[in-house]
Simulated assay, not measured.
Amino acid sequence: MIERILGEIHANSSFLVTTHENPDGDAVGSSLALAGYLKALGKDVTIHFCDAVPDLYTFLPLASEVVQQLPERDYDVCFVLDVGEFRRAGAQINQCRRVGKFINIDHHLTIDNFGSINYIDPAAAASGVLVYRIIKASDWPIDLPIALSIYTAIITDTGSFRYSNANPEAFAIAGEMIEVGVNAWDISEKLYESQPQERLMLLALALSTLTTSSCGKFASLAVTLEMYARTGATAELTDGFVNYPRSISGVEVAVFFREISAGFFKVGFRSKGKVDVSSIAAAFGGGGHHNAAGCNLKGSLDDVKTQIFSHLEKAI
């Protein structure tokens, strides 16, 4: 599969690199690492995200080159990274007819095989790992800018190596990126020690919604549009909120309800390992990994909670 991808890279000249809506650290890091590699080869590269790069990741090389408006031009190849479902790449990509072929690179357990080439490995800790494998297979030397993006992709998707996907390969690649020149503390400071005050104000409101099931096996938090208005915070500042209910002793599954428009919620699930939350998300039209998954639901917060909690009670 990697050789096929390298063949397409060498045979073509213009590339579009994109990822999912509301991009996280792996989405941003893997995309920028791949784009950096393609640019180093002298390729014509456009990096497009349907949503802006979160402030948290703007320190990464090439982050300033990401565009939200897809240029009116043709591309030989479009790399789509970490999306899980093709629709999550956004309407502009979904409706694009200016691409010769799509190459799908992902590590989600549930995934649309929409590409001409689908490089999928759920055992990989992050999509950034797959990009690393591609670059290494080409014998191209990884420089510091690319290393920064790969390291960020891995450290964020493994929860700073706390999650079960922090396998030996993830540690080995991270160590290699440090050998290239990545400063581990500098990255950690940027990711975890530089949060805006609005995030803590929003977290305080979210924690007031903490709910734990009668069985003690699942717990939840919620963020509503009204909370954003009260604090001046944005959706990107909710990253990591789901870890608070998951940290409760005895809880196996944490749920995070985030209102993305009036009466429309994004539901995120996190498991400690015993429960496959990808199957729970799939029951509501979503998907993801064994330990991290999500779906979207319409209705009031109470209605959405009722649906999810009812299903969880049966599943757990």
Results as ranks from 00 to 15, higher is better:
Ala126Phe: 10
Ile2Tyr: 00
Thr212Ala: 10
Cys78Asn: 08
Arg270Ala: 13
Ala166Tyr: 05
Ile117Glu: 15
Phe284Ser: 09
Val45Asp: 03
Thr209Val: 04
Tyr75Leu: 01
Ile142Glu: 05
Leu200Lys: 09
Ala137Gln: 03
Glu169His: 12
Leu144Glu: 12
Val67Asp: 00
Cys50Ser: 11
Leu109Ser: 14
Gly287Asn: 13
Val267Gln: 09
Thr152Cys: 13
Ser31Gln: 09
Ile316Ala: 03
Asn296Cys: 10
Ser127Gln: 11
Ala63Lys: 01
Phe49His: 00
Arg73Tyr: 01
Ala125Cys: 15
Gly285Asn: 04
Glu21His: 09
Phe59Val: 06
Gly100Ala: 12
Ser127Pro: 14
Ser213Glu: 11
Gly288His: 13
Pro122Ser: 15
Val277Leu: 11
Gly159Ser: 10
Gly273Val: 08
Asp139Phe: 03
Ser164Gly: 12
Phe114Pro: 07
Ala52Ile: 05
Val277Gly: 12
Asp121Ser: 15
Phe256Ser: 01
Ser188Ile: 09
Gly159Thr: 13
Asp303Gly: 06
Pro196Ile: 10
Ser194Lys: 08
Val80Asn: 14
Ile134Lys: 01
Lys136Gly: 00
Ala89Glu: 00
Phe79Ser: 07
Ile134Asp: 00
Ile103Lys: 15
Leu237Phe: 09
Lys190Thr: 07
Leu32Thr: 08
Gln92Pro: 04
Gly294Lys: 07
Lys305Gly: 01
Thr158Tyr: 01
Asp55Ala: 13
Thr18His: 05
Ser261Arg: 08
Glu3Ala: 02
Leu130Asp: 05
Ser194Pro: 02
Glu21Leu: 09
Met227Cys: 05
